[in-house]
Computed example of a mutant assay.
Amino acid sequence: MPHEHAVQCVHDPLLVALSYLVSVLGSFTALQLAVAIPAARDARQRWRAIVAAGAAMGGGAIWAMHFIAMIACKMDIPVSYHVGLTVLSALIAMVSCMAGLAIASAGVFGWGKLVVAGLFMGLGVTGMHYSGMAAMLMPATTHYDTGLVVASGAIAVAASIAALWLAFNLRGWLQMFGSALVMGVAVCGMHYTGMAASRFVPDGSGAAPAGGLSGAHLGLSIFLVTSVLLAAVLAISLVRQRQRAMVQI
């Protein structure tokens, strides 16, 4: 059986912890931004809020967490990442989150709409994960456990439904922070279940294909993404404070 010769993935505990913290940060950012969706005065303002919250959720809580966790996986073979597929995985995550928020916020908020939005978003998140896995360039082939793949997709859908419900029902910093902690667990649970579904079997060549993005360069990219998210939240918070101050005058 090919799985008997699979390369072992040993996770760096510090990077695993960092992946969770990044997911919490992205989740908290997205929840802060999502508050503006139901409060939007017109369609243009609503779409701006959807794009901002979707980018924070997909780009920070999900995509950045995913690739930090990928870097945390240490194997005895060289690994780099296909640039196009890496960018595609980020776009899938952000667009699916934006679509989920758009579906859930259209018209009257209800459970039926929430489930449909969660399914759409969850399948997108699952697509992000496995396109990110496909971006791995290494002298090995990847084999998947079908049951665990399905389980990872189910976790992604459940996490998406929970995230959407929280986005439209929570108010207050403490509630959002507590929810972000829970969402971080759910997102990490989906990723590491997906990783458990994977087996990497060396192909005997011993060298990764040239032209990929190294783990160090990928880490720098993730740092830039999360920095932009933080800057966006700070800017939006300042604008809101100014608006509230002007209303009170």
Rank of each mutant, 00 (worst) to 15 (best):
P2M: 04
P2C: 05
P2L: 07
Q8A: 13
C9L: 13
C9S: 12
P13T: 07
P13I: 02
L14Y: 07
L14Q: 03
L14C: 00
V16P: 02
A17P: 01
L18D: 04
S23L: 06
V24T: 06
L25A: 15
S27H: 04
F28R: 10
L31Y: 11
A34D: 05
A39S: 11
R41L: 08
A43N: 13
R46A: 11
V51D: 03
V51M: 10
G54C: 07
A55Q: 00
M57E: 01
M70L: 14
M70Y: 02
C73T: 06
C73V: 10
C73L: 12
K74D: 11
V79A: 11
G84T: 11
T86Q: 02
A93N: 08
M98N: 02
M98S: 09
G100R: 06
A104C: 13
S105R: 09
S105G: 14
V108I: 13
V108L: 10
F109N: 06
G112D: 10
K113R: 15
V116F: 09
A117W: 08
G118D: 12
M121W: 01
L123Y: 09
L123H: 02
G124C: 07
T126W: 14
M128P: 04
M128N: 05
H129M: 02
H129D: 09
M138W: 02
P139G: 12
A140D: 06
T142E: 00
T142S: 03
Y144I: 03
Y144M: 08
D145Y: 01
G147N: 05
G147K: 02
S152N: 07
G153I: 00
A154R: 01
I155H: 01
A156S: 14
S160Y: 04
L164M: 10
R171Y: 06
L181A: 14
Y192C: 03
T193N: 04
T193G: 01
F200S: 07
S205M: 13
A207W: 08
A208D: 14
A210K: 14
G211N: 13
S214C: 13
H217S: 15
L218Q: 10
G219C: 05
L220D: 04
L224G: 08
V225D: 00
V228F: 13
V228A: 15
L230V: 15
A232F: 12
V233E: 14
L234E: 07
A235T: 11
L238A: 14
V239T: 06
V239G: 00
Q241W: 11
Q248H: 13
Q248V: 12
